[in-house]
Computed example of a mutant assay.
Amino acid sequence: MISIEGVSKSFGSKKAVDTISLDANDKEILVVLGTSGCGKTTTLKMINRLIEPDSGNIFIDGKNIKDQKPEELRKTIGFVMQHAGLFPHYTVAQNIAIVPNLLKWDKQKTEKRTLELLEKLHLTQDILKLYPHELSGGQLQRIGIARALIADTPVLLMDEPFGALDTITKSAIHNEFKNLDELKNKTTILVTHDVVEAFELGHRICLMDKGKIIQIGSPAEILYHPVNSFVKDFFASNRLMLEYKIASVKSVASFLDKPLSAKAEEQLTATATIWDILQIFSTENVYNEDYEELLLAFNQYRKLQTV
């Protein structure tokens, strides 16, 4: 859906992005991960022409973005930035309606779509008359997401969208975000420096350093098969937690010495990770045996994955 081919960008003598190439597949969430200054935000902003590359080409759905006017291109791309980027002198309703107004939607269509998104993001209608300064951090970010999703564009770009939130709020929004129906029909590129966030949200991860792409792969590939010591060391401090988060209960089932209890089985879903289930099992004593059994099975599983 998105192809970046040999793209570079310099600011003065500093090369922010150094001849990178990558593809973001249709309907996937690709997370661009790295420390501050690695070039990830510059890369993102070149996709919607907020920054123009010095060289190379970017294609969206096979079309070179250079062949489109920036303002027309941006109508086909949702964009979420850190701190939501809402206009302070607009109400929430006016902020959400910015793109629909540019697309000349009628008022009824805009209102209907706005209410749909508020429900999905667990926001009440009375928030629509408020101004950004009257909202909490979590509310601001949810409104920023609603504004980016309202036109249901095929591409969504997100620049550190959850970076300003506390851990509890961030966790709640991650869950809401992952369950949005809209994401199943669009290609999303999300920039972050948060390793755990990358593993929770990304189908694939692109790790950057000093303007270059170091490795691209699924969370499991990048964790268990690092291409060099930089990649291995980058995830070292969070490694065990990340392993819990990427291992599904299904993947360790063959390592169980005995089946989980019927009550424990009721908690399992097709996409449940070891992390998800252990959080549930740790809350009640009734799951003590299941907790130990699952933990032993996971340890057997991870021994076969670790490099």
Rank of each mutant, 00 (worst) to 15 (best):
K212W: 05
N238A: 12
K104C: 06
I60Q: 00
K75L: 15
I58R: 11
L30R: 05
L240G: 15
K263V: 14
T273W: 02
K232R: 03
L33S: 10
L242S: 04
D257W: 01
I277E: 09
F162I: 02
K210W: 11
P100M: 10
D181Q: 12
G6H: 12
S229E: 14
P100E: 11
P219W: 00
S21C: 10
G12P: 05
L260E: 10
S8Q: 09
A97R: 05
D257P: 03
K232M: 03
A253M: 15
K14D: 15
R302I: 10
L268F: 11
T153Y: 01
S229P: 11
N288I: 13
G62H: 11
E265A: 11
E116M: 01
R113F: 02
K184P: 04
L190V: 03
N95M: 06
Q279F: 12
I47L: 15
S254A: 13
L30G: 10
Q125C: 10
E200D: 09
T169F: 07
E284N: 13
V196N: 03
V17M: 02
N185R: 07
I173V: 09
A172E: 13
R49F: 10
L260V: 06
W105I: 06
G78S: 00
I98T: 13
E289P: 04
I173Y: 03
T192P: 03
I4F: 06
A164N: 05
G56I: 11
R142A: 00
G34I: 02
S251L: 09
V92L: 02
L242N: 03
L30V: 09
A272F: 06
W105S: 08
A164R: 08
G12N: 15
V227S: 15
V155E: 00
I168W: 13
F255N: 11
V231G: 12
I214Q: 00
Q267L: 15
G144H: 01
F162L: 14
V155Q: 00
E243M: 05
A93V: 13
S21G: 06
T169R: 13
P70D: 04
G211K: 05
I20T: 09
P88M: 07
K210C: 06
D290A: 04
K15P: 07
E5Y: 14
T42V: 08
V227N: 13
F199G: 08
G202F: 02
L183I: 04
